[in-house]
Amino acid sequence: MSATERRPSTAEQMGRMTAPGPFAAGLLAVAERRADIVAVTADSAKYTDLLPFVERYPDRFVDVGIAEQNLIGVAAGLAMSGYTPVATTFAVFATRRALDFIAIQCALTHENVKIVAGLPGICSTFGPTHQGIDDLAHMRVIPGMTVIDPCDPFDMEQATIAALDHDGPVYLRQLLGRHEPPVLDPARHPFVLGKARRLRDGTDVGIVASSIMVAPAVAAAEQLAADGVSAAVLQVSTLKPFDDDAVAELAAATGRLVTAENHAVIGGLHSAVAEALVGRGVAARVAAVGMQDEFGVFGTRPYVAEHHGLTTDSVLAACRRLLTG
């Protein structure tokens, strides 16, 4: 390299610079006012929307390479040194490969580590090794862990800010796109940790939805309305702590719930809803849309969604079964 040639930045060396996604926007907004924010990744900066942060704060960025246990260990060590680390990798690798480090070094002593997990549920086209369909179950069961599963780019950005400002370990599922899934309503109130949001009122059936299943839930409710069925939609972005009140209230009003999630129906939203209802003594029939105790197939998002029934039609069918059965 000649003396006059400009040395490429770390971010440039990592590949194509993209416009910040909703996660990067939230991260940058907080990093600007807080010098304790650092980012750690396991060779996933490009694919977890970290490049805008790397470009702006190269000294506050650490890449540990393809080593997820070390990723979480290093992040914990930074937290124990007064920093607030954001550790990024894919959901499958964070939760399947580094679970012990998350439980013991992050959660047990309530360290301020934020785990940002890419490719939640069927967001990956790369089959079962990359589809995080069990991550929420692993994270929910860890004592003291806060678990967030945003539903659209607006929610993602707001949830990122809330996660960083929360004191304690957080597992935050990451939606990457700036336009996908479409923003439901940018005018709605900002994300509030632990609070579900009623997107639509209804009396015949309640759809409790999270992640990329919120938009299909709203579409299903609109189609039901055309048929004269009054369907409510409750958007859940915080899996833990869970908004038991909102779910119990909806169940008491409708007597029928459909859960719709981008995850296995075991251990995630469906389980959280069932636990809330049992705990409150509210009787309701609850149908589950999500991955039905199976691994995902390879393929494009629409193909995988269709194959496993994570679609508007599946939500509609579940509602109709409850209404007629």
Binding site: V40, V62, Q69, N70, I72, G73, V74, A75, A76, G77, L78, A79, M80, S81, G82, Y83, P85, D100, F101, I104, Q105
Partner: peptide
């Protein structure tokens, strides 16, 4: 677990 955490502390 010690060395990964210690590495994070060294960076800190």
């Amino acid at each position: 677990h010690g060395l990964p955490v210690a590495a994070g502390m060294a960076i800190g």
